[in-house]
Simulated scan of single mutants.
Amino acid sequence: MVRLQLARADDAARSAAAGQIKKVALRLFAERGVDGVTVREIAAAAGQKNHGAVGYYFGSKEALVRAIVMDGAVALDRERNAALDLLEEQGGPRTIRQVVNILIEPVLGLSDDHYVQFIVIFAMTHRDMMLDAIDPAWNRAYGRCLDHLRRLMPHLPPALQNQRFVFMGAYISAVLSARQRALADRSRAHPMWGSESSLEHFMQSLVALLDAPADLPKDMLARIGGAGAAIPEPPGPVG
Rank of each mutant, 00 (worst) to 15 (best):
Q180G: 03
W193L: 10
Q161W: 04
M124Y: 05
R27P: 10
A208K: 06
A30L: 08
L221P: 13
M192W: 01
A7G: 01
A212V: 10
M220L: 08
V99E: 03
E79P: 09
M192T: 14
F202N: 06
A82S: 15
A83L: 04
L146I: 14
L6E: 04
L87N: 12
M192H: 09
I119M: 07
S187P: 01
R8L: 11
L86Y: 07
E31F: 05
R144Q: 13
P232N: 08
P217Y: 00
D11V: 13
K23A: 13
P157W: 07
D132W: 05
I172M: 03
A43H: 09
P213A: 11
L221Q: 13
L209M: 14
F167L: 03
V37A: 06
E89Q: 14
R97D: 02
P234N: 06
R186I: 04
D135C: 12
L6N: 04
G228V: 00
E105C: 11
F202Y: 06
A170Y: 02
Y57R: 15
V100I: 09
P234D: 06
R151G: 06
W138T: 15
Q117K: 07
I21Y: 03
L103C: 07
T125L: 05
P232C: 03
M153K: 05
P232M: 07
A63D: 09
A227T: 08
L221N: 10
I96Y: 01
A170S: 11
M168K: 04
A170Q: 14
M70R: 15
F122H: 15
L86A: 14
A184G: 14
G169Y: 06
A123I: 14
D215W: 07
G194N: 12
A53E: 10
A44W: 00
D35I: 00
G228A: 01
Q5A: 13
A13E: 15
S198T: 05
I102R: 13
F167C: 03
A53N: 04
A44K: 11
I224Y: 10
A75Y: 02
A229Q: 15
V116C: 03
R140G: 11
A208N: 04
P191K: 07
N101P: 06
